[in-house]
């Protein structure tokens, strides 16, 4: 068996109902897993951008690429893992605060990760942190030690870097 690799696909699709189901369906129907998925309209209202993270051996990744391309509503597919790209993800973390001392500590840690406080209540606060996978993992591990009440991630968004010329 070939070794499994993580791949990020950038997929431009027609902005219509049903398109996401077609994309998701080609994964579920073949038993391929989607690790993360992000969909939103682009600057062109007619086009949505899907960033999709998946994994598999070379043959599976090739099948995913080919089958995405085969969908009529898919305009363009790029396997970002084959070129240099930038990627970001945003996470919202609600941390439990049971005493003022802890609040100060959490705020200090948040600063290390360049997190922003977007809500503060007597017993909790919500932080927004952006970064790549490694950074978010480190942040989540640390805040876990304080007690995470709730966590929500966007999934990755990614694109190829601009050309050198």
């Amino acid at each position: 068996m070939n070794s499994e690799e993580r791949h990020i696909f950038s997929v431009l699709v027609e902005n219509r109902f049903g398109v996401l189901a077609r994309v998701a369906g080609l994964f579920s129907g073949r038993g391929f897993n989607i690790d993360s998925l992000n969909v939103a309209e682009t600057h062109d209202k007619g086009i949505s951008h899907i960033t999709l993270v998946t994994h598999g051996d070379a043959q599976i990744i090739d099948q995913i690429y080919q089958h995405l391309n085969r969908l009529i509503d898919v305009i363009e597919v790029t396997d970002l893992s084959t070129g240099t790209h930038v990627e970001r993800e945003l996470v919202l973390i609600k941390v439990a605060i049971d005493d003022p001392q802890k609040r100060t500590e959490v705020l200090q840690v948040a600063e290390v990760f360049r997190g922003r406080v977007i809500d503060m209540k007597p017993a909790s606060l919500v932080l927004e942190i952006t970064g790549d996978e490694g950074k978010l993992k480190a942040a989540i591990d640390i805040f876990n030690t304080y007690g995470i009440l709730e966590l929500s991630r966007t999934g990755k968004v990614a694109m190829l870097r601009g050309s050198e010329k």
Binding site: F17, G18, A21, R22, G25, L26, G29, I72
Partner: peptide
Amino acid sequence: VIGVTRPICKHSYL
């Protein structure tokens, strides 16, 4: 029917 036929057609329209 669009949902039912999604994996068995080339394309579909509602």
